[in-house]
Simulated scan of single mutants.
Amino acid sequence: MTIAPDSARQGSPQYQAMREAVVQMGDALPGKFEITKEGIVHDMMAPVGPHELTALRVRKRLEKVMPEELVAHTGTPDVEDEPGGIMRHPDIMVIAEVDMEVQASFDPRTLIAAVEIVSRSNPDNDWTGKTRDYPLLGIPIYAIFDPRTGTGAVLSDIHSTPEGPRYATRKDFVYGEDVTIADWTISTEGLPRYQ
């Protein structure tokens, strides 16, 4: 659910007010809050078992095949482009450990890939909003795992369009197939589905 206007830019009173609201609401209310080009998005439901188990299995599988200096991070902080007025929190961030040595939000341009497990309560946030925002943030690879359908997609090759940067390449997959995220191929066998 989007709950604020998109007129915010970094340094603007609107963006600062939304950022403060996200911090305050995040401490007091369940779910996840992010700032997008359209305003504040609230994924009202706390992640459920299949969501968290998918994130865990994908993270572990990626870390088995990536170089040791890279991690598939599932914690905080957010990634934020203050000048663009966007603050997002991917379920998994593929990033160099050295790029995590920051005091505030991660620079989204240091991410190698963002991975999302589609939320049952707000799938459009992952399939539409983040498909728009992640290329704006400069995140080169965006992988989506959808436990609702047992399918997913890997988006890559950012290019310019009249509406702004967008992913040019989309490779769909179904659970059970191998999937390549950046330079690493992992299995999607045994990933849970929502009931």
Rank of each mutant, 00 (worst) to 15 (best):
M1N: 02
T2I: 15
T2Q: 07
A4P: 01
P5Q: 08
D6P: 14
D6K: 10
Q10V: 04
Q10I: 03
M18I: 12
V22D: 08
Q24N: 14
Q24R: 15
Q24F: 12
M25N: 06
A28E: 15
A28N: 09
L29V: 09
P30L: 15
P30C: 12
P30N: 13
K32N: 06
E34P: 12
K37H: 09
K37N: 10
E38R: 14
E38K: 12
G39L: 07
G39H: 09
V41M: 02
V41N: 06
H42V: 11
M44R: 10
M44H: 05
M45N: 07
M45E: 14
A46V: 11
V48L: 13
V48H: 07
G49E: 13
G49V: 09
P50E: 06
L53C: 03
T54M: 07
A55N: 06
R57E: 15
R57V: 06
R57K: 14
V58S: 06
R59A: 15
R59L: 09
K60M: 12
K60P: 02
K64A: 15
V65N: 08
V65Y: 09
M66C: 05
P67S: 11
E68M: 04
E69H: 13
L70S: 13
L70M: 14
L70H: 08
V71H: 02
V71D: 08
A72F: 04
A72T: 11
G75A: 01
P77N: 03
D78A: 09
D78C: 06
D78E: 12
E80L: 13
P83T: 09
G84L: 12
G84F: 02
G85C: 07
I86E: 08
I86N: 00
R88L: 14
V94I: 15
V94A: 01
D99E: 15
D99V: 08
V102D: 01
Q103P: 00
Q103V: 06
Q103L: 12
A104T: 14
A104R: 14
A104N: 11
S105T: 04
D107A: 11
P108G: 05
P108I: 06
R109W: 07
R109T: 13
L111R: 10
A114P: 05
A114Y: 02
E116L: 13
E116F: 10
I117D: 03
I117Y: 05
V118Y: 08
V118P: 02
S119M: 05
R120Q: 08
R120M: 09
R120H: 12
D124P: 01
N125F: 14
T128W: 04
Y134H: 02
P135V: 06
P135F: 02
L137N: 04
G138T: 00
G138I: 00
I139L: 09
I141V: 09
I141A: 00
I141Q: 02
I141M: 03
A143Y: 10
A143K: 01
F145P: 04
F145S: 10
D146H: 09
P147A: 10
R148H: 09
T149K: 04
G150M: 10
G150D: 03
T151M: 11
T151Q: 13
A153N: 07
S156M: 00
S156Y: 00
D157W: 00
I158C: 00
I158V: 13
H159F: 03
T161P: 04
P162I: 03
E163L: 10
P165T: 05
T169F: 00
F173D: 02
V174Y: 05
Y175G: 01
G176V: 07
E177S: 02
V179S: 06
T185Q: 06
E189P: 00
E189K: 14
L191Q: 05
R193I: 05
Q195Y: 07
